[in-house]
Nucleic acid binder design. Structure first.
Length: 162
DNA sequence: CCCTGATTCGC
DNA sequence: GCGAATCAGG
């Protein structure tokens, strides 16, 4: 499949809309993301007004030499032993995607407080639906048919979030 | 491992 | 001109 005028127009629009190369490739069909990227460059529109994910244009500072020989200071002098470091059970690890990096085919399972800075999405490869296989299981599991004791049920529901 | 764009180079 | 392979990065 070659680059017809129509397909090129599509490419331009989608690219300028901020879609990623792989997303565009899927949408156009018959091309890989490499082909899309190559074409984008040949068309001279590599830089985007609204990049899907701003690629660092700045250079990274040369790695500062690591202090090697110093012993790792166990910073923790005074803390009168708090009750228990028992972690909350039902919080997940932060996802790999933020609202800015969440792609079309990434799991959109929200993790954390949407109003806080640490809010993320799961971000793993999504299947048919908006979620990855694991979260799809949780999301689409209606109810457990049998009644259980309150404690048992609570323990059950919490387990799913570990 | 998933993803992103950038570059190279044989075709 | 094209795009797979590769590179470099999150």
């Amino acid at each position: 499949m070659g680059w017809t005028d129509e397909r090129v127009e599509n490419l331009k629009r989608l690219w300028l809309d901020g879609l990623s190369a792989s997303q565009i490739a899927k949408q156009l069909g018959g091309v890989t993301r490499n082909a899309v990227i190559g074409k984008v460059h040949r068309l001279g529109l590599s830089g985007r007004a609204a990049p899907s994910q701003p690629t660092r244009p700045v250079f990274k500072a040369p790695r500062p030499p690591r202090p090697v020989a110093t012993a790792p200071a166990p910073r923790r002098v005074e803390t009168p032993a708090q009750p228990a470091p028992v972690p909350t059970v039902y919080v997940e690890e932060p996802g790999s995607a933020t609202v800015l990096t969440l792609g079309a085919h990434m799991c959109k399972w929200p993790i954390g407080d949407p109003s806080s800075d640490g809010f993320t999405f799961c971000g793993r490869r999504a299947g048919e639906g908006p979620y990855c296989i694991e979260h799809a299981r949780v999301a689409y599991q209606p109810q457990q048919p049998k009644k259980r004791s309150g404690a048992t049920e609570l323990a059950r529901s919490l387990r799913r979030y570990i």
